[in-house]
Design a protein around this nucleic acid. Structure first.
Lengths: 123, 123
DNA sequence: CATTATACGTACTTTATTGTATGTACCCTA
DNA sequence: TAGGGTACATACAATAAAGTACGTATAATG
């Protein structure tokens, strides 16, 4: 739960008003979000598929992050209203737009990791 | 401080081993990091300049994040060894490579924010 | 008739991050 | 000689995120 009257919260708002970057980071933050979005972009639609794809995410985390990404407008939740339940998740337009950026970030991440590992092992 | 034997920690490591994306997010996480890096990329070199540029970051946060980004290999700290102290921060090569990606992310962030605001105000 | 599968919800504990307050050592300027 | 600037460090309190354990309803399967 967010505490609306804390400096913590205020600082985040102030940052987000400065430029788009903090908003982007806010929307992507948390351990699992980018992986969930990525997984959906690869064609995993159902809760169970995403869970299996990531492998070791807890059900609580998955549900929570999916809800947040839905609220942020990145994904759409389609409930087939059946029993047992059948739900599918899709990227929205803005969610889809994010994927190439994540791809860039991923490539950078590889480079950064290798570079740093190398430098550390040189000692 | 990180607790090395927690599931929390282990999960992060597991994710990072999967692809470059979690590593990138790990390196950029926290409220202030991307703004600090951005500020340096704009030409702010000194501690005080970065602090003034962001405006409302506490000194503790700034120091802490600078140290982390240095450990992650994104920036270099050049201490002029004078009294009163004079220190300058520069982006490394890999740190510089990140800037265009952050720029993309920033643009996406604007779009995502506007889109979401609009949809919310339509209710 | 017990198990598995679906997609969650809720209460609780553990870990991690962020913020606040204060102190440091020295220099320069008024 | 009092105050401001430089670039931090440290102890502590407040807040947020992540993980654990357990429970739900129903249907199909063995």
């Amino acid at each position: 739960m967010r505490k609306l009257a804390s400096t913590n919260f205020e600082n985040q708002k102030r940052l987000e008003s400065l430029c788009g970057l903090p908003h982007a980071m806010e929307v992507l933050k948390g351990r699992w979000k980018v992986n969930i979005l990525w997984s959906i972009s690869l064609g995993n639609k159902r809760y169970g598929e995403i869970k299996k794809d990531i492998g070791f995410i807890s059900e609580k985390m998955l549900t929570q992050r999916l809800r947040e990404s839905e609220a942020d407008g990145l994904i759409i939740r389609k409930d087939f209203q059946t029993i047992p339940p059948h739900v599918e998740y899709y990227l929205t337009e803005i969610g889809t737009d994010l994927i190439p950026v994540l791809d860039q970030l991923c490539k950078w991440g590889y480079k950064a990791r290798n570079k740093n590992d190398k430098e550390i092992s040189e000692h």
